[in-house]
Amino acid sequence: MTDSVLFSSFDWAENTLQNRMVLAPMTRGRAGADRIPNKIMGDHYVQRADAGLIITEATAISEEGIGWVDTPGIYTDKMVEGWRSVVNRVHEAGGKIVLQLWHTGRASHSDFHNGNLPLSASAIKIEGDEIHTPKGKKPYEVPKAMTFDDIKRTVQDYKKAAVNAKAAGFDGVEVHAANGYLINQFLDSRSNQRTDNYGGSVDNRYRFLAEVMDAVLSVWDKEHVGVRLSPNGGFNDMGADDFRETFTFVAQQLNKLEIGYLHVMDGLAFGFHERGEAMSLAEFRALFDGMIIGNCGYNKEEAEKRLSDGDGDMIAFGRPWITNPDLPTRFKHNYPLDSFDDPSSWYGSSEEGYNDFETYREKSGKDAMTSLT
């Protein structure tokens, strides 16, 4: 066992987090067609409750916000009840958990919306890969550019989702403004070609996020609110030439709000747009005074370095935690990791590829029993 900054505690939003490891939000599609959080989702998070902080999978704030098959929502009473069961179980296991608020925008399809087109900042479709819909894989569509009424309604959807998250007992909420989803579509000058007060200059493109933050902060104390950004991301056809100017401004504005944390996809992995040098965690440390979470394919050694250098306060891990439900234990004791290179069973509706991975203790115990027979 080794002592390290990764396993030191950290104070956040009146909570003492047990380590600096964050379970990254990962869309896994286990909520079923009714999108109500269920027992196997609770089992999954409880298995990983030794994280310093859990960020849930992206959770739709409304029917209009849906863009993935079988992902959960937070816009009905039954969804709140489902999430409350999950949260209670995580708390009983000693964990802390925040809900990620999600609207997919143009990264959706009319098959999810009874034939109505998905919404976005502008009527510009995603170029490239197809989307999985309830009726199969299909090309992306040209979305509907949001009207002022659409924007006003969607901001209220974020507020209601924040209210529902509090009712479910979460420790906080994270506004998903990354990875090419709706808020990111407003921020990025490639996907936002509006000529009104929500387009053009960077402060105009930030306006939608600013209004969402006002709505969420009217429900939650600022210390319990985080925002996720992907300044270097090319996923969902993102990545404008002015990315550094945009995300420098966004980080500065969020800092003025004194929110609890900034969750940054900071590296070159997962679809770097290759429009100049990537923005680093250290750059955001200079712009933001609150807790900073780094997230971009980190291994243990890289995480330790970022924390030791003071660039971030927490590091999020995603794929390694899928196949290694006891990831903090494995890191702490330098146990080997099970491979996480085969995603064929990660997405779906069953326990397979979700809750059937063994801890190191379970696996080594089986190996020991086998050697005795």
Rank of each mutant, 00 (worst) to 15 (best):
272 F>G: 13
255 N>F: 03
228 R>D: 02
68 W>C: 01
206 Y>A: 10
215 A>R: 12
93 A>H: 09
235 F>V: 15
269 A>L: 14
219 V>W: 04
170 F>K: 01
288 F>C: 08
52 G>P: 05
304 E>F: 01
227 V>Y: 12
97 I>K: 03
297 G>M: 10
266 D>G: 05
305 K>L: 12
132 H>Y: 12
279 M>N: 11
340 F>G: 08
219 V>R: 12
70 D>V: 00
118 P>W: 09
99 L>V: 03
325 P>T: 09
23 L>M: 15
64 E>T: 08
359 T>L: 07
75 Y>T: 03
220 W>I: 11
362 E>Q: 15
131 I>D: 07
355 N>L: 06
261 Y>Q: 05
369 M>A: 15
157 D>P: 00
349 S>Q: 14
252 Q>G: 14
25 P>A: 05
317 F>Q: 08
51 A>T: 13
232 N>V: 02
177 A>D: 12
59 T>P: 02
39 K>L: 10
267 G>W: 11
328 P>Q: 03
209 L>G: 03
329 T>W: 12
9 S>V: 06
246 T>W: 08
267 G>K: 13
56 T>V: 01
327 L>A: 09
258 E>L: 00
133 T>E: 06
95 G>R: 03
202 V>D: 11
68 W>H: 15
211 E>S: 10
372 L>G: 00
106 R>S: 11
339 S>G: 03
265 M>L: 13
267 G>L: 08
260 G>L: 00
248 T>D: 11
179 N>Q: 11
66 I>V: 15
71 T>I: 13
86 V>W: 08
303 A>L: 01
51 A>D: 02
344 S>K: 15
236 N>T: 06
63 E>A: 13
134 P>K: 12
10 F>S: 03
186 F>I: 03
13 A>L: 05
290 G>H: 08
235 F>D: 09
313 D>Y: 07
285 R>C: 04
45 Y>H: 11
302 E>F: 03
109 H>S: 10
276 G>N: 10
286 A>I: 00
195 T>Y: 02
322 I>T: 10
5 V>D: 07
63 E>K: 14
13 A>G: 06
271 G>M: 03
87 V>E: 06
174 E>W: 02
206 Y>N: 06
172 G>C: 11
14 E>V: 00
268 L>I: 13
95 G>K: 08
206 Y>V: 06
330 R>E: 08
361 R>F: 12
108 S>M: 11
323 T>V: 04
142 V>R: 12
59 T>Q: 04
228 R>C: 04
258 E>K: 15
64 E>C: 00
79 M>F: 04
14 E>Q: 12
362 E>A: 15
205 R>K: 09
320 P>C: 02
305 K>M: 13
155 V>P: 10
83 W>P: 10
279 M>V: 02
260 G>K: 01
178 A>Q: 06
222 K>H: 12
157 D>H: 14
2 T>L: 13
147 T>A: 04
10 F>C: 06
177 A>T: 11
300 K>H: 00
176 H>G: 02
20 R>Y: 04
330 R>I: 01
337 L>F: 09
298 Y>I: 06
298 Y>D: 05
352 E>M: 08
299 N>I: 04
123 A>F: 04
191 S>M: 13
95 G>F: 04
233 G>W: 05
260 G>W: 09
58 A>L: 06
247 F>S: 13
242 D>H: 07
